[in-house]
Each structure stands twice: as C-alpha cells, then as structure tokens.
Write a protein that binds this DNA or RNA. Structure first.
Lengths: 341, 341
DNA sequence: TTGTAGGCGTTATCAA
DNA sequence: TTGATAACGCCTACAA
C-alpha cells in the first residue's frame, strides 16, 4: 500500500522572501497590497506567491492580529429548511464586511451548543450568532462579553435580533378562531421550558377568546416524525377531539397530517392543521400548509450587522426586523360542527 | 449609547503560571494532564484555570502543533435534508478521534466551494470532506495532497467514499419499467456536465430495455420549486407525455407532483413520479414518494474514518459502503395505457 | 522603498 | 518534578 504524503513544509512568506531576494516583512507588505512597496517588487512577489502555491497560515495571522476575520454560526439543526434563508442573509452581510462564515450544527443538543461556542471562542472568531439557543441564559451571561455574541430570538438576551414569535403565533390562532374553531390543540416543540413564546401566544389567544385552556390538547413533538404519529394517536384517543391543531413547525404539521390520514381523518375537513416556518415544501404537501413565514433572510443579515457594530465597539439597540406573516393555504378550514350548522 | 467592551486581555497560560507560581511550561503540562506534574500542582492549576476563565488559544496551538484537530466539511446545500444523517455520521466518527467539525455551506456555488476549501486550508484543518463536489476534478488534483481531502461520490477522485449512484438509479428505472412504463422522463439536477451518474443510469436502463432515448423527456431542476412548475408545463406541452418521471431528488419530485396536480394530472394515476434521497418528508407528502435511500450515515462515518487513515500516513482503499435501497411508496404505479389494457 | 527586531500564546526539548 | 528556551508563521513598529 503506497504511503500517502502530505506536504511537510508549507510555503511560507520566508520562502517567498528568499525566492524574491527580499525580507519577509516586504513580502507581507506586498501581499497586503501596500503602497509602500515598489510596484515591480509587489508584482514579482504576487506572482511568486501564486507560483509557489503560498497559502497564508491563519493560525499565525490570528495570533498576531488577535482576530480571525471569522464569524461562527451555531445552528440547532442545519437541515431544518427554516435556516436556509437565514444562512443566505448571514453570508451576504458577512461578505460586505470581509468576514467568513463557519457553521457548527448542534443537532439541538444543549451540550453541543456550548461546545460550539467554546470552539468559536478558542478560534478567536470575531463574533458568534446563536439562533434559537437551547442553553440557559445564565451560561451566555457568564460569557460576560468575552466575545461579541448575538442571539436570534431570545427575548432575555442582552444582544439579540428578534422576530416577534408571539405575534406570528397569535396570527395563526386568530385565523383558527375566526374560522370558528373553539377547541384548538397545540403541539409543543423541543424548546427549553419557560421559553415557549408559541405556547404563550396560544394561551393568550385562548384567553382573549374566552376559551378555557385544556391541558389535554397539548401535545409534544420531539423532532422525529414518529412523535407525530404518537400525537395522532393521542388525538384519536381523546373523548372530545380538537377541531384544529397549531403545530410547532411545518415538519411536525406535515407529519401530523400524514398520520391523521392514516387514521382516516382528513385535513382540513375533519381537523385543521397549521404549521410554522413556511419551509420550502410547505406549499407542496397535500393539503398545502397554512403556516407562518419569518423574515429569515433579514434575521441573518441583521445578526451579522449587529455583530459588526458590536465589534466596532458600539452597542447598537436591538434592530427592528419585519413581522412574521401568516400564510393561509388549504390545511385549515372551518370546523366540522360549524360547517354542519 | 453605552460603549461595549471586549476583554482586552484574555487569560493565558502565563497568567495562570504567575498565579500558581510556576513556569508556563508547567501549566501546559498540567493542562495536558501529564503525569510528569505533581498531582497537587496539577489540581491547583486546573482549578485556577477554571476560576480565571482560561480559554486556550487555538491559533497559538495550531501554530506550534502544526495541526488544528479540526475537520472541515464543505456542504453544497446544508438545508438539503439529504445531509442530515450524513452530518451525524461525520460527527460520531469524528468524536472517536477527538476531531471537531466545522461546516461551510456553499449553496451549490462552485466559487464558494473553492473558497471553502481554501479557508480550511488556511485553518490547517486535519482534513476536508467534500460531498457532491461541483468543482472540476483538476482543481482538486491541483491541490496535490496539500491536505487530506476525501470526496463523497466522485468516481474519478483519488480519495473518495462512494455510494453506487448508478445502482440506485437503475433500481428506480427497473421499478418503473417493471410497472410497464415505456415512456419515462428524467429530471436532471444541477450537476456539472459530464458527471451525471443518474443520467447515465437512466440511459443505460432504457438501452437495456430497448427503449429509444428521447431528449424531449429530459427536464432540468435548478434547485428551486419554480423550476418544477416549469417542468410540469413542459410535460403538459408534450405531444406524447411520459407516463412516469424519475426526478433528480425528492424536493424536485415533490414540487413536480404538486405542479402536475395544479394542472389536473394526478399521481400516480396519470403519471408516476419517483424521487431520490428519501428525505424526512418523503413519506409525508401525498402520495408518499417512491424514492431511493442512501446510507448517508455510513457515508459520513466512512469519510472521517478514511480521512483519519490518510492523516496517519496510510493510503486506504476506497471503502465499501452499503448500496442504495429502493423505497417503493405510492407515487408510482402502472401506466394508464397499461392499466386500460 | 526596504530591512531589523520583537512579540503574539503555546508547546517540545533539554537541562536542572 | 519543574524551569528555561527556542520555535511555529506572521505582522507592526521603527530604523535605515
């Protein structure tokens, strides 16, 4: 078996300096495009660097510059399509400031979230974005300005870019209430207890409509489709079934619809189901999903913009981002009883 | 506006050394858990480090160690659910070797792919995984062993972990042919020309079945759902429509099914649609999608394992991974004509 | 316009 | 068991 070999000695500015017959510091300046280098020298060095396959050593640079030019993004579940536009917003804004993006996926594991932040800290990134953080706020407070860190959607965070979750959820609830539903179920997601704005909105909407809160109508989605089947069974087992369900997100809603169908309930005829997130496939499932769309692109943009200001030593106020929008499609309709009457 | 401040001076081993009244080198040893440090000293230093909030400086470490303990993953589209299990496989295997994972999402942009590899190079990562690379092989060959780099699914790559794409696609085609389809459409994805194993399989299967290849039946998915609507229109406009379509992936298949329905064609009664990838929602859309599942977890695992061997100076052979599996659900059925007869 | 020198934080080696 | 030292690759004064 042939032995593979990695380049033992990477080309450094010293090598280039030797080849160009100048001092390493001149190479540095030349590579930075400094005016204080004779054009001829600069060009010579540039072509030499390219020829020799010079790759700057970020470690060395970061060490001396005390910054890396990197932004770390801690994503709870990168495959959640919800984050697609968010990523684009981050990238686009980062590009404007010559920052590069690194992503760590925590799969929703709280310990992994801390590990991620820790790694970014060690990497001396210029800033960290943590959307939908799972970890306790105390942990982040404990970081104590060790690094510019902005949360996305965390009311209690010092530095944050927020979208009005409650508003979006209220829109869904109002929609369902206006359709005539009185018995509405709610699917909780894997959020830290005490931090459930959707749940808060759910209860508030019920309150305002004068509807009694019934714990029987609260279900839990754990991120897997299996759990939506469980939810369907729980719904079926109820003496008095809900006529509508507000799902934690579109994946859970899609799973639930599918599971309900397996049990011969049709959506929205027998039961309405609304989701949250407006993922790419929301409009493709059958029936197309009523849901809430967030301005994810803007959230991404604003996060980096905020981070950048922080890095500049400013302390910007929490920026305003557009409100969530209700997207009414076909998975919601009037309740059976209401239609009958 | 209050001025935000970042810690000017991070705690270093020198600070700890001073506090513990020892030499920095002793701190290093202690922190490494070396046996060559008195237990008392070690413990004292450990608690001091924790107390003082010491965060190691990766830049300095990487500089002297000449390695970072990082693995870079270049993902073409992180929100493609296709990569969910892949990521898990990578993580799990990386954890075994004490490697940490960094992800860059290229959004399918070839230039971004190179930038990503470049950044990882600069970061001195221990290895790079590039699944479904878009860039030309010459680029990667040009890297010339600058770093351990393994491709996922790229036949022509020197270091690769492959899943038999052709096999999987043949399974779909055989399935459709066995159902009696003779006029089968194919949806191309955004792959570099000349590197289209699915297309290859499509044509080969047709050949073997003695069916003439008709360029009219080739459509193109560009990653957006809009393009699936276009495809539907193109299908509709055909004099002789296909009775089945093999879609590039599940997203395109789901979009296509939805679009066909908007045009009053039902699936699979009027036209069968098969996908590829078996994403989380494949079973939830209506009708549940016939598709191909890849052993993504294993692919992720094997990539890192391969990378690790490379790093050890070995040159492992391309590892064997399980074959793709055909998942028959309800989006495919016999052709209308066949059923009539 | 270019060179010299010192240091960024950490570690490995050698000496004590 | 611990300390001193040099080095990793790069950059920024400052000097020439």
């Amino acid at each position: 078996m042939e032995k593979a070999r990695w380049q033992t000695h990477r080309v450094t500015i010293k090598d280039i300096a030797r080849a160009a017959n100048v001092d390493p510091s001149t190479v540095t300046r030349a590579l930075q495009g400094s005016e204080r280098v004779k054009t001829a020298t600069r060009e010579k060095i540039a072509s030499l660097a390219a020829e020799m396959g010079y790759v700057p050593d970020m470690a060395a640079r970061t060490l001396v510059n005390r910054r890396s030019g990197l932004i770390g993004v801690v994503i709870p579940d990168m495959t959640n399509p919800f984050f697609a536009e968010f990523g684009r917003g981050i990238e686009d804004e980062a590009a404007k400031h010559d920052l590069r993006i690194l992503i760590i996926d925590t799969r929703g594991v709280e310990a992994a979230e801390r590990e991620a932040v820790k790694l970014f800290l060690e990497l001396k990134v210029d800033g960290v974005v943590v959307p939908m953080a799972r970890g306790p706020q105390e942990y982040y407070d404990g970081l104590n300005d060790a690094i510019p860190l902005v949360h996305v959607n965390r009311e209690e965070a010092k530095h944050r870019v927020n979208c009005d979750t409650v508003h979006g959820s209220i829109l869904v609830m109002q929609h369902l209430l206006e359709l005539g539903h009185r018995r509405i179920g709610f699917v909780r997601g894997p959020a830290p207890p005490g931090r459930e704005p959707k749940m808060f909105a759910y209860r508030q909407a019920l309150d305002e409509a004068g509807i009694h809160y019934d714990p029987e109508l609260i279900f839990t989605f754990d991120g897997t489709l299996e759990s939506t089947e469980l939810i369907a069974e729980q719904v079926l087992a109820l003496d008095e079934r809900p006529t509508a369900i507000f799902g934690h997100n579109d994946v859970s809603a899609a799973g639930l619809i599918h599971a309900l169908r397996d049990h011969k309930l049709s959506v929205p005829q027998d039961i309405s189901v609304a989701g949250h997130d407006d993922i790419q496939l929301s409009g493709c499932i059958d029936p197309p999903l009523t849901t809430v769309a967030w301005p994810m692109y803007e959230l991404g943009q604003q996060s980096v913009r905020y981070l950048y200001s922080l890095g500049q030593g400013k302390k910007p106020r929490a920026p305003k981002v557009p409100l969530p929008r209700l997207i009414v499609r076909e998975s919601t309709g009037g309740p059976k009883a209401a239609r009958k009457s």
